[in-house]
Simulated assay, not measured.
Amino acid sequence: MVNVAGRKAKPVNLHLLEGNKSHLTKEEIEKRQKAEESLTLKSDNIKPPTWLDSEGKKTFRKLIKEFEEIDLLVNVDVYMIAMFCDAYSDYIECTKIIQDEGKLIEHTNKAGETNRIPHPLLTKKSHAFNQMKAMASEFGLTPSARTKLIQNMQVEGDNEDNSFSGRV
């Protein structure tokens, strides 16, 4: 089966950051920028979903407060941030239980023998960590993710200093 979908479309500013390899004219660039601006999403309803537990809501509010400084989030980002906060809450809960019960627990098998096995919540804790790690990079919640954002912003700023002359 052949994939006929082609490449994903890129925002025009990203296209310009990468060097305008398609050689878009100034008019084409302005037309795309206007079209992208018309798709700007609202950011007037960013609050924690009711299904988050208290730890998740607390984390959500802390993150949103930090993001307000850079005006990055819009309403549709609420769900991804909430999923990060939910995974964080699960991670904390697993950690507390494992600290209380120990990393190894006693397990009696079908033959009646008792063995010490790794705590089952270690797997859930690892899964929650992987979820947080994946979403953290999407929102710049790690040093390396922030560095990438900063580099893109610097390149974009450099491109804005250059004036267009016909083709870019």
Rank of each mutant, 00 (worst) to 15 (best):
G102A: 06
S22E: 15
E106W: 03
V76L: 08
L73E: 08
T95F: 11
K65C: 07
K21T: 09
L122P: 00
E156W: 12
L104I: 10
K21Q: 10
H127Q: 13
N45R: 11
A82I: 07
G6H: 01
N159S: 03
V78M: 09
A136I: 01
S43A: 15
K31L: 11
P143T: 02
E30P: 08
E27W: 04
S89C: 00
Q33W: 03
E156S: 11
D71S: 10
D158C: 03
C85V: 05
K133W: 02
S137I: 09
N130C: 09
Q151R: 05
Y79R: 12
E37K: 14
P118L: 06
E18A: 07
S22R: 15
P11Y: 14
D53C: 04
K8W: 10
R167N: 13
L73V: 02
E138I: 09
P118T: 08
L141I: 08
M80Y: 13
I117L: 05
V4T: 13
D53L: 04
H127C: 07
Y88Q: 13
T147C: 00
V155I: 12
D100T: 07
H15V: 06
V2D: 11
E37T: 10
G157N: 07
E18S: 07
V76Y: 05
I97Q: 14
P120C: 06
N13Q: 11
K57S: 03
K148Y: 00
L41H: 07
T50W: 04
Y88G: 10
A111L: 08
K148G: 03
S38T: 00
A35S: 11
K96M: 13
G56E: 05
S89Y: 03
Q151T: 10
V12C: 10
Y88A: 04
S43T: 01
R7M: 14
T25S: 15
G157S: 08
A111K: 11
V74W: 04
L16E: 05
L52S: 05
K65Q: 13
S43P: 04
E30W: 00
T40W: 01
S43V: 04
R32H: 11
K31M: 10
I105Y: 10
E101C: 04
K21I: 08
N159Q: 02
N130Q: 11
I81V: 14
I92R: 14
Q131C: 09
F139R: 09
F60I: 06
T95C: 09
I150W: 03
D158W: 00
K133I: 06
G56I: 01
K65V: 01
Q33N: 05
Q131G: 00
V12K: 04
K58N: 15
I117V: 15
E36V: 03
I97P: 08
T95A: 14
L122T: 08
C85P: 12
G112C: 01
D44Y: 00
A82C: 03
M80S: 15
L121K: 14
L122S: 00
L63Y: 04
T114F: 02
S163C: 08
E37A: 15
R7H: 11
I92T: 09
L39P: 02
M132F: 04
N130F: 00
Q151C: 01
S163H: 10
C94V: 01
G166R: 06
H127Y: 13
S126W: 01
I70C: 10
N115W: 12
R32T: 14
K110P: 03
I105R: 13
M153P: 09
